[in-house]
Design a binder for these strands. Sequence first.
DNA 1: GGGCACATTTGACATATGTCAAATAAAAAC
DNA 2: GTTTTTATTTGACATATGTCAAATGTGCCC
Lengths: 195, 195
Amino acid sequence: MSPDTFNTSKEILSYKDKIIPMLKNLLETEMKEYIQLISLKKNDFLVREGEVCHYYYFVLEGILRNYYIKDGTEITTNFDFPNDIAANFTSLVLQQKSIGYIQAMTPCKIYRMKASDFDEIKAQNPLMQQIKEILVSGYVILLEERLYSMQFRTAAERYHFMLERYPHFLQQIPLTYIASYLGISLETLSRIRAK
Amino acid sequence: MSPDTFNTSKEILSYKDKIIPMLKNLLETEMKEYIQLISLKKNDFLVREGEVCHYYYFVLEGILRNYYIKDGTEITTNFDFPNDIAANFTSLVLQQKSIGYIQAMTPCKIYRMKASDFDEIKAQNPLMQQIKEILVSGYVILLEERLYSMQFRTAAERYHFMLERYPHFLQQIPLTYIASYLGISLETLSRIRAK
DNA sequence: GGGCACATTTGACATATGTCAAATAAAAAC
DNA sequence: GTTTTTATTTGACATATGTCAAATGTGCCC
């Protein structure tokens, strides 16, 4: 497939439906030799504070939580569901020690690929190059959205936005973690929900 | 120069010092035919709400402010200084109408390049491909940092963090805009500063 | 099914931050 | 230099959210 196969703009909007299944398929066929399937039990760690993250992870089953510890309190930064790419971006890209953890909230099945292998493949394979670009662009758009949401929305607005955008969060994630993810206390979240 | 010239991790940390001058040089030589130099007067707009952003901008001189309007109030999301790349990422990548403005706070000189031209060059030129990757990665790291900062830091902590990281902001940007950028009211910022 | 751990809600109060209005201070215009 | 505009500070008070403690609810283990 040529590098011009995609119109990036269109693809990002639907990357969950198209790019991710394509990537999964590539991982399971052409790239088979570069990936390992790993299993996690509930509460196992994928990444720990102080470690350098060397892998990209592709979540097949289960839910993971990204968090770090500030003044003894866990700050939840993200959740990874099936078909999400999990990684500590900063640690991976800068090859710095991670300041956070990625922990399994449920039993998980995950493909992992060494970042160095991925980079090599990418240099030879324009399609993989483009897939990465689309995924990273999608991540930037998501981060901007979350950032501006934190900057000017009230706690209640952020909660309702999350409900609309990620209704599955509520069914599968304890409120303590959701509160932390939204940047509010558990009690405030509970009161918002009471209305 | 081959695509393996860079070790991405190292380069991101110093991209302001190395990658940006290199990019500027490329723009002024090899890519000369693809760029235009534009001048803005104070308060001119580079991007307006409702327009689709078709260009990447490279700031040569001057300062710009990115903001959008929510319920009649301006929310400042970013500032662009010389040697920054300015663009509305979401609008550019998704080819959607921009929800925000980019406005000159001072007279500006700026190179612009059509995103479509850039994409073509990039497909032929591994170095440009890599430069883009480094710049986008740097942007992701910055966004994550800002997001987590908004999520758990107090207004005072965010202000002091900004002071440390971007001391030039304070010298050149009115406090109203800094307050909005930090997600706090002008009065609160003033009180934080009073201490 | 009773008991235990964990999750969620509720209440009372503390604190951070916002809002509105006015007072200064600083900058720009004339 | 004086006036006018804009930026910043300050005060008084309102509101949102946090904190601590206790009560209630829920699922799980034996």
